[in-house]
Computed example of a mutant assay.
Amino acid sequence: MAKIVDFDQAEKKARERNSEIERLKYTLSHAGISQEEIENALATLSKGTGKELYIGTKKSSQSKVRFAQYMQNNWEFLRKNKYLTTREKTFLLDIVPSVAFDSNCIVIDIKAKTPVPANITDIAEMLGSDRSNTSKTINSLKRKGIIAKSESGIDRNNARAYAIFINPHVIYAGDKDNINNALQVMFYKAMKMPVMKDLPDKLF
């Protein structure tokens, strides 16, 4: 007589085994403390403090390392479309160490508590270039939607000074999942421009 297999029962047992394996893995990865014990402890602490608590880990020393992200697919797209000149690409690569976190503004010192926006003269000095060529490159990148200018509110020698920002779709020093709102407004029109509107990776 053929043996009748109860597939529902077999599936139930398989789920129970998987659940038990997951509980064991959790216990082993949390110094032998079960998930239930941890959840009960958190519930007790939450009740005592009146706040919702969760388990976190201390930030590593690497979390303080400053870095900027190159949008690789977008760079490749711009390269294939010959959108940037060699001088413009060199400028963008060389200026990365001076791009402030979150604001994406080119600043004099990214380590300063309150970074000061760099003007064209500052940028020329940073790059070891002359002011005229630096100004031409910046204006060219501005026309292409790669750079934006905004009044910095800092007067130097009674002259109006501008802060210079880089489009985060090209280079971004910050959390790409939480783009600064001011940057989104600043580059809204730029992302409607020919070529730029077709970039493969959009952040906003």
Rank of each mutant, 00 (worst) to 15 (best):
K12C: 08
P115I: 09
N81F: 02
K82T: 04
I179Q: 02
G174Q: 14
N81A: 08
S98E: 04
I147L: 09
L199I: 12
I95M: 03
L199P: 12
I164W: 10
G145C: 12
R143N: 14
L203Q: 09
E37F: 03
I179G: 10
N73T: 06
K111L: 11
I108Q: 12
Y26T: 08
K59M: 02
D175Y: 15
H30E: 04
N73I: 00
D177E: 13
T86D: 05
E76N: 13
N181K: 09
E125W: 02
T114P: 04
N180I: 09
I171W: 15
E36K: 11
I120F: 06
K111N: 13
V185Q: 08
R17F: 05
Y54Q: 13
S132N: 00
D130K: 05
F187E: 02
A148W: 00
I110S: 08
S140M: 07
D6T: 13
F77C: 05
I164F: 08
L141C: 08
A112R: 02
L93A: 05
T121S: 12
S129E: 03
L199W: 11
K142H: 06
L141T: 04
W75L: 14
R156E: 03
R87T: 08
I106S: 02
T85C: 01
S129T: 08
T90P: 01
K176G: 06
L24S: 06
S29Q: 13
M71P: 02
S103N: 06
E151F: 00
S29Y: 03
N139K: 15
C105D: 08
E151V: 01
F91D: 03
S29K: 10
L45E: 07
Y172T: 15
A31E: 07
M193Q: 15
A118T: 04
S150K: 11
M186K: 09
D94S: 10
I21D: 09
L203V: 10
T27R: 15
S152H: 02
L42V: 10
I55N: 13
A173Y: 10
N133I: 07
T134W: 11
R160V: 07
A31C: 07
I179H: 05
Y83N: 03
L45N: 03
V99T: 05
R17G: 01
N167L: 11
S150L: 04
K82L: 06
L92Q: 09
I106N: 03
A173H: 15
N81Y: 06
R131W: 09
P168L: 11
P200Y: 13
S34D: 06
D102T: 07
A14K: 01
